[in-house]
């Protein structure tokens, strides 16, 4: 078993993202947006009898 770091994995751009932390931050934002959108869905698309 080895536990050495692999620099080529940890550095460099990942597509449009400058580094892994940026990509992870984008995923967090994506999740928050998904929750907000679904909440908006829940509230605005409720046409039940009041």
């Amino acid at each position: 078993m080895t536990d050495r770091s692999e620099p080529d994995d940890d550095n460099g751009a990942i597509g449009i993202f400058p580094s892994w932390p940026w990509l992870y931050a984008a995923i967090i934002v994506y999740t928050v947006i998904a929750i907000v959108l679904l909440h908006v869905f829940t509230v605005t698309l409720d046409f039940g009898p009041r």
């Binding site: 909440h39 869905f41 829940t42 698309l45 409720d46 046409f47 039940g48 009898p49």
Partner: peptide, 9 residues
């Protein structure tokens, strides 16, 4: 929406 079928959260 009448039966709240789109209710996700």
């Amino acid at each position: 929406g009448i039966q709240q079928m789109w209710s996700s959260i």
